[in-house]
Design a protein around this nucleic acid. Structure first.
Lengths: 233, 233
DNA sequence: TGCTAAAATGAACTAAGTCCAATTATTAAC
DNA sequence: GTTAATAATTGGACTTAGTTCATTTTAGCA
């Protein structure tokens, strides 16, 4: 209903949006975000400046929409791929790896920074508003939910809140990655994912009774057997 | 050496900075951030607009400096107070509680949002540069270090990285707090601190061997909350 | 064909932030 | 006390993001 482009009006509208995004992204990646003016984009896309702000609330929003569109395209496929993976740790690691590689390929550093800041800013306005979430959050939440259903992730915090928390951790990963380009990306990701899953407490003394990487089946078994103290409604 | 104001030049400079901050904060809190123009601040402080941008890189930076100055004043005292507390959990909880209460008392909501976004933005530029960190990070790092020295916090990740991670979690707390003003602040803080310390793995089956992790109150808190949040549609 | 509604336009406007040459105040040297 | 060097301030012109709105263009529909 919404995804189908109904008639010529819609098609034309979509076409201008598409062109604005295409021209803008090319200019941003080529000359840099700051050195590209909205007027230049307007000229390149052959529309009035007003038209651009008709479609996008701000210059940064063009970048965000570019990313969002790509996430839409590949999002469903990504969720399916993630389902194949054995546990939450591997799913999160894979998702972050995949996403950051995409960013690396498609956005300049300074454009990426703009994107990150804009998304954080928007999350300030939209934590409550589920419809307006970033594409990222839409993938994080299913992952958390899967983990909870498998008994791997604690059920006392809702998937919504956990994925929100995860979104911030993802931002942290991106920023570390930008700040330390010489460090292998996989190291940063593994570390932050581990911190998310295991927390900051020192667990070495307990290693005997608690293995970091939980065997999924076993946990599921335990949870099913005697894990109903916090009666879930 | 640096903190001492040497001569009249320095004193005058400091005086204009002080006046700009004072006038700006009063106007921001009174009429709102967006509805206050830099020209109005300049007029109120009786300086040229250029002078303001001479002292502050941007409008938001005035807010940041206001917060930083206050953090400087009370920072050392805060660290001492935190040393008195028994463990990392109580220190983090106290710090967040204290900070957010200060924000609540001293900044309008919209001014606070501006501050948060600006700090996140800056952290993009300054993760590496320890000298330019936010006042917050300067308190978080000692807390983590204390925890590591006490064998409470895992030593395999550096205090620097952990406190960086914590800074993002703090941002998450602030945003949740802004988004859900009806929820008790302490609930939000406790939850996020717990998530930081214990991680997202489900540990219920292992409770027997994690005496320091979960106490009765905490469990009660989770159970109580659980019923509330999950039922909501 | 003509009517309606959506989209695009252009132009004037506001406000943040930059730039820079001229001016003023402060310090230090003689 | 005069003066040269230095640092802070000023004002004004400029750029750019973003707003506003009246007008025009375009497509849909009957």
């Amino acid at each position: 209903m919404e995804n189908v482009i109904r008639n010529r009006t819609e098609r034309k509208k979509e076409e201008t949006r598409r062109k604005i995004i295409a021209v803008a992204m090319e200019l941003f990646n080529e000359r840099g975000y700051a050195r590209t003016t909205v007027d230049q984009v307007a000229e390149g896309a052959d529309v009035a400046k007003g038209t651009i702000f008709n479609h996008f609330p701000s210059k940064e929003a063009i970048v965000a929409e570019y990313v969002r569109r790509n996430a839409r395209e590949t999002g469903a496929e990504a969720v399916n791929l993630l389902k194949e993976l054995p546990d939450t740790r591997s799913r999160l690691t894979a998702l972050l790896q995949r996403s950051l590689e995409w960013f690396d390929k498609n956005l300049n550093r300074d454009v990426l920074k703009v994107y990150i800041v804009y998304m954080l800013q928007r999350s300030l306005e939209t934590v409550k508003n589920r419809g307006m979430r970033s594409g990222f959050n839409n993938i994080l939440e299913p992952i958390v939910r899967m983990g909870q259903e498998a008994g791997e992730i604690r059920p006392d915090i809702s998937a919504e809140e956990l994925s929100n928390h995860l979104e911030w951790i993802s931002a942290s990963v991106m920023i570390l990655w930008l700040a330390y380009p010489e460090k292998p990306l996989s190291d940063i990701i593994e570390r932050e994912v581990d911190l998310f899953l295991n927390g900051a407490f020192d667990r070495r003394v307990h290693e005997g009774c608690f293995c970091r990487v939980i065997d999924k089946e076993q946990t599921a078994f335990f949870t099913k057997k005697n894990g109903h103290r916090h009666n879930k409604t």
